[in-house]
């Protein structure tokens, strides 16, 4: 029987600073880990502990995994002290990712807040691999300040992809920022309310479009309300749920939300699945 709790040794191949407290790590596991966009892995810092992360690399690449990580807790802080060549542990993948087969032929709205764009990057890269299949990919990203923006070099490249647009905002006015200002929901202002008209560069129909949302809980809460107002169907709104997780296997209980285990029934869950909860975020 396989040991469910054993991490696979993985070497840090590259560390790229994104912001003062966010970096993208590239790991090479000794055994390949193949995941679907939206699934997560448990990352072990030896002797310190584990924490769950959704990879930010292309799921179609299996020999290495990239994870963009913000230093906020015990494990992530310990990780900042590690260097290229050091060994960490990975196990997984776990949970449910995006139902990408259902995205074909549709407009896809991707809403990221802060470091919440990181897990969405793996989805974005997977979508780009088959970009012809989707009617439109609209990436809308909010960060607190220009200094908090991750993937600064990638965002303009993504905007050049076929059928793709990238809209950005920051929370407060800033001398270095010429673009939109306001919390991330302002990026939904151009969307029609329960009607079908052409807006922005490309057409958008909220009634059939799919939304994939990841960010801090407060953002999910307001984006969820805004998208439902705009006419998105609850079953088409995918949220990345965040909970404390220890095992990732549906056993330890930490991520329980009612009868759901976020690690098994999530971490990607639709607004329809979580509709029974007053405040699931």
């Amino acid at each position: 029987m396989k040991n469910l709790y054993r991490p696979i040794e993985s070497v840090i191949e590259d560390i790229k600073a994104e912001t003062p407290n966010i970096a993208t790590y590239r790991f090479r596991p000794k055994e390949p880990i193949s995941f679907a966009a939206g699934q997560f892995v448990e990352l072990t810092v030896p002797g310190v502990g584990e924490a769950p992360f959704t990879p930010s690399s292309n799921p179609n690449v299996t020999d290495t995994i990239e994870i963009t990580i913000m230093s906020v807790g015990t494990v992530t802080e310990a990780l900042t002290k590690m260097k290229v060549g050091d060994t960490v542990g990975l196990r997984g993948p776990y949970g449910n990712g995006y139902n990408m087969a259902d995205f074909e032929g549709k407009e896809i709205l991707i809403m990221g807040g802060g470091v919440g764009l990181a897990p969405l990057r793996s989805l974005i890269l997977a979508l780009f691999d088959d970009v012809e299949k989707y009617k439109k990919i609209s990436i809308r990203y909010g960060a607190r300040t220009p200094g908090d923006i991750i993937y600064k070099e990638l965002l303009p490249e993504w905007a050049k992809m076929k059928n793709t647009e990238v809209l950005q905002t920051i929370d407060q006015p800033h001398p270095d920022w010429k673009g939109t200002v306001g919390v991330v929901t302002v990026l939904l202002d151009d969307l029609p309310l329960l009607t079908t008209v052409d807006v922005g560069k490309l057409p958008f129909n909220p009634e059939t479009a799919v939304a994939c949302v990841c960010g801090p809980p407060i953002m999910l809460k307001f984006v969820n309300v805004a998208l439902l107002d705009k006419g998105f169907k609850p079953e088409n709104i995918y949220h990345s749920m965040e909970r404390n997780m220890s095992c990732g296997l549906g056993k330890c209980g930490h991520c329980m939300m009612g009868e759901f285990y976020i690690c098994k029934d999530g971490p990607v869950m639709t607004a329809a699945q979580i509709a029974e909860f007053d405040d699931p975020f």
Binding site: Y5, T44, G49, E50, S246, K251, C252, G253
Partner: peptide
Amino acid sequence: TCFLLVDQ
């Protein structure tokens, strides 16, 4: 049945 994994 709940537990916490602890590394040391």
